[in-house]
Design a protein around this nucleic acid. Sequence first.
DNA 1: GCCGGAAGGACCC
DNA 2: CTCCAGGGTCCTTCCTCT
Length: 952
Amino acid sequence: MTVAMTAAPQRFRVQGWDPVLIIVSLQALHYLVLSLVLPALVTIFSSSDLLQYEGGGTSIALAMDWRVFTGSTVSGIAASRKLGAGLVSLESARSATRGWTAAAAAAAGELDAASLSHGVVRVLEYDAFRGWAVALGWVIASMADIFFLYHIVRRPTHILDFSLTLVFVHLILTIYYSSSFPTSFFFWFVVGASSVVQIVLAEQLCVKREMRDGFSLGDVTPHLGVEMTPRFPDLELGQATGHGSKQSQSGDGTAQTCLRKRAWTGEEPKASLLKRMAGPSDLKAGVGGKKTADEVQRIIFEASKGSKYFNDQQRRDKELEIKVNRIKGILASKELTAKGDEEQKVDAILEELAEKRELSRVIALIDADAFYAACHELEDPSLKGTAFGVGGGMLTTASYEARKYGCRSAMPLFIAKKLCPHIKSLKMEPDLYVAASKKIMVTLEKYGPIAPASLDEAYVDLTDYCANQGVTPTEAISRLRADVQETTGLTVSAGVSPNKTLSKIAADINKPDGQFVIDSTAEACQAFIKGARLRKCYGIGRVTETLLNGLGLETVNDIYKYRKRLYLVRDHLGSSGVFRWLLSLYLGMGSNRVVRAKRGDRKTYGVEKTFTPTDNRDALDDILRKVAKSLAKDLARSEFSGRTITLSIKHDTYERVTRAFTPGKNVWIRSYEDICRLGLHLLRKEMDDRAAAIRRGEKVKGGKGPRIKARLLGLRMSNLRDDRWVKATPSKLPDMQLSDSDSDMLHESDNSDEGEGDGWEASKRQLEQLAKDAEVDPLAGDDDWDDSHGGASGSGTGRWMVVDDDDEDDVVLSGKTRSLVSRTSSLPLARPTTARRTSCSASSGSTSTSAKHSAPSSSAARQHSPTDSRASPTASTDSRPAMKRKTESTASSKPVSEFTCPVCQKTLVGSETAMSGHVAQHFEMPAKKSEKKAPTSSVTRKGAGKGAKKKR
DNA sequence: GCCGGAAGGACCC
DNA sequence: CTCCAGGGTCCTTCCTCT
């Protein structure tokens, strides 16, 4: 089945959507399968003698009479109708429920009195296997239906309906056929259970496909009715060709209700879409309010309607809706089998989590008010009180005056103008903001360790300040805020609590120039967060919020209220730790670690550019070159190189794709030439690939046009290496890093002390990973989400980040203590192909590992040296020296040179990177079949979490 | 069993 | 009339191809 499914052409599209036709064909297919399967099963498992008298295994009754499920094969009235009077009397002499299916037998026409009575006698022995066989047949047919549903119905939202309809129709038929209402528990159970399984599986498959292939909205009317009244709740507009949105709540009950409840009001703008259009920052829209939230939403909606952007949002909204429906479905099915002890289980977890509560610290989040806008006001006081925004095209900030009209950050200017016609827009002036930010941070540092989260936001650990000065947190934060205002002229808001999670929410409460302090008691923390809307919590975005709303949750307190639901769907909540994270959220817990991000924490550098959409290849090339240049400049300025480059394209349709390339294990990209070449190469390749895919009739992103029409191009460099670190290491070729001396050196050093550190760091990492959802740091008492919050994502506004640039060497050095990716112990033998490729692509030694984070990784060094020597002689001896010589000369002299590929003997002109890339392409990926596994990570995690907790 | 690359998403500011 | 950014991080899933 799987084979057939994957092999099946994807071209089938629901064009003329005809529910009747669909249900008829489904029903037909279902019975077809039954009729194929049942005879075989029954013949195998049932008493053949009996069968003979009932018309054999091909008797229609097997499929149509519910009573066969009971194992006994009876026929009551239906049979008697068709049989002679003599038989009827014989029948009626029997009990109403014991006997045999005379109908079929009669149809077969092979009945004589002797065998009849013989049969009757035998039948009374009761064929125990019959019921099981038939049930099995039904289950098989139901599973086959999954296939049909998947291909015929396709839309996840409709699976439930059709599935239930099928059963419903069968019910009617079987009642008619046997002239009695099914009273067999077994029958109901089998039919019910297989339906549930069928629905769940089919939906999942469909959702998966839709996620994969993208959405075919060909059947959706592209244009929403103008006077869309969101309020006809359950109107039946006939079903016509509209697209239904699922309106019935889970738990609506029977099949019939489900079918009826369906409202095919495809033309109504859903609240979710309205909300979506309002942008990400639509919360508490009434800040002062020259316009009501409703008005604002409407204006935005009107302004957006019909645009490409709008269509994209609509598409996403549909996808999200499916996701929500899916999780609702899962919940519904899980509730059927719920054991009833879920709440206790959750309570136990809560208790366990609560034990780790940490209240000893005083953590503040300081957040500048309308930061960019405020900076401009500082420069030009005449701006005060006027409505203006910062950023052309897209607002990054709106002044408070502009906010009264509903203008928000991340809002396009032209919409802001609709909301507030007199809004002024100012150009961004990064230098201004950076300078101001630095001033703020400097001030903050007087009050304790700080962790900038972005230009305008930072966490401050006030614990020691409070202790030393003998002041309350409230007093401390008041001083701090006054201090900042005095020294910078900017107002800031602050939230204070025992952890970052709460402080973040608290800072929002008295937003402009205000503060909110939460007492350091468990009660205060919990009481505080209880009433918060979910969306307020860091980490809960639009999608998660909608998902949770779908489960009935609105506020943090609902996490507790609906803990059973959450528990039941805990494996489908997105990433694996979410469930426990939510629980800890409810408890008002969070990380309290305030650590400044270091230079080495940067993971990627990227540049992207939006432009008026074009499909002109030259124009696109040109833009990409500019992007490459900008990226190269960034990298050069901060002295980083990267191993993998990623091209990202945003199509005219707003669908995004990314295409990445990693030339080789030890090839470091950094020069403009290389970036440009690789970028263009990726772009070309994508153009070709896409065109080819279209020719093949596959579905691709960005419309059906054979050429890419893009509105954005971007390049991003990842797998970074800190070149300052490399420089600090005595290495011959800091640029192209192929020198063996590196490897020797690193080898030495890590064997001695770094190796130890690395191991320790690595295991610490692992522990942290494992402790994730347990919300405990085995070592420091911090946790997953917040870790990313306070720590790494502090890189925030990219190149303006304060942390980043002009750091001194000591920072670099300290950066190395912090090991990143778990580079677990040595991996002795690399796969042959890998080794070959690696060595071929000019890796000889290993500066490889991201030197920036630390520990010139022992493993990396070890990993390569042995492999190299062991590598297939043909490849390595031939190619490597040649490569190396070439590259060395290249690196030292000019960026571009000639070179002969050791494999294909072609002569190429290009830089080192290009060469390596070329050579690498000659080698296939390892031909190993990687069988995949989905380890129930929750189990391991849980175990680890517990372990960690105990340890603590 | 893990690593690792590639692709896609969710989130944040 | 022009008509929705750009900088990041982290996490998950799937692993070749005509």
